[in-house]
Write a protein that binds this DNA or RNA. Structure first.
Lengths: 138, 138
DNA sequence: CCTTGAACCTCTAGTCACTAGAGATACTAG
DNA sequence: CTAGTATCTCTAGTGACTAGAGGTTCAAGG
């Protein structure tokens, strides 16, 4: 049996976050001691690690909730799980695409400024003021 | 003179967002008609476009505020502007790095699942449950 | 058994950058 | 003058936590 602090250390998830997950219905409500403190078992540690791993991969809590639901029904088809993974992959790819364009633009803006001039002549500020300097969409 | 709606259309920034920027002190408070409606001039359109452009590049409002400050003091050195651009570039690169690792992991997880099995045997769910399947850090 | 101090409890509010909606007032075209 | 759109302020909600107040419980040492 773990206290919430021990669970926290074992799963690398902060204590208030564990309570938050419980509130959100992602983690089954823990049993309590006589003094009203939460006590957890191995199953809940596993569950929390699952959530943590999915969060680290960027899945929103709503998707994680759906994945947990599937876990609880091992006879259901896993097509939904695959779709959720695909959606997340798509989201990540979109973000990479956008950020890569931003990176190019920011590099150009940054490199165009010597850093020792007057801000009245600053290429950073001029670039931000006038979209015409840009070489990519964003 | 523009109404807030016209300003919104010219700068591609939503009306409530303009009011929010005013509240946050990023956009100078507009003059008002007798009936208390905001009226804007060309300078404010330019200012709003500056903010919009910086936001599109991912600068946080706080950094934008600092950049506006520099704009208003053309004789100050532009080193701060360069630093802010560099910080933003760094942030973007970090995000790309992390997302690229996630993409690889998600692709592996996604491709490992046929989508027509039972969720009890699903590779997506198994991967999320057990970090040991992973090939990168995250 | 008793004390001390860390860990725990609940609850509210704050973060960031908006977005949504209610209810009231102002402007503008016909 | 009227109808309909645009505007006003204010509050609350988003996602995924984080911080803090004020109080209670636990575990170890004496």
């Amino acid at each position: 049996m773990f206290s919430i602090g021990q669970l926290s250390r074992h799963a690398s998830v902060k204590v208030p976050t564990i309570r938050y997950y419980e509130d959100m219905g992602l983690l089954a409500a823990a049993g309590r001691t006589e003094g009203n403190q939460r006590r957890y078992g191995a199953a809940q540690l596993e569950q929390l690690r699952f959530i943590k791993h999915a969060r680290d991969l960027g899945f929103p809590l709503e998707a994680i909730s759906a994945l947990i639901n599937l876990q609880d029904h091992p006879d259901r088809s896993c097509s939904e799980a695959k779709e959720l993974a695909q959606a997340q992959l798509h989201t990540v790819r979109q973000k990479i695409k956008r950020l890569t364009a931003l990176e190019a633009e920011l590099k150009r803006i940054h490199d165009g400024c010597s850093g020792d001039g007057r801000s009245g002549d600053c290429y950073v500020l001029a670039s931000l003021a006038d979209h015409g300097f840009c070489t990519t969409d964003h």
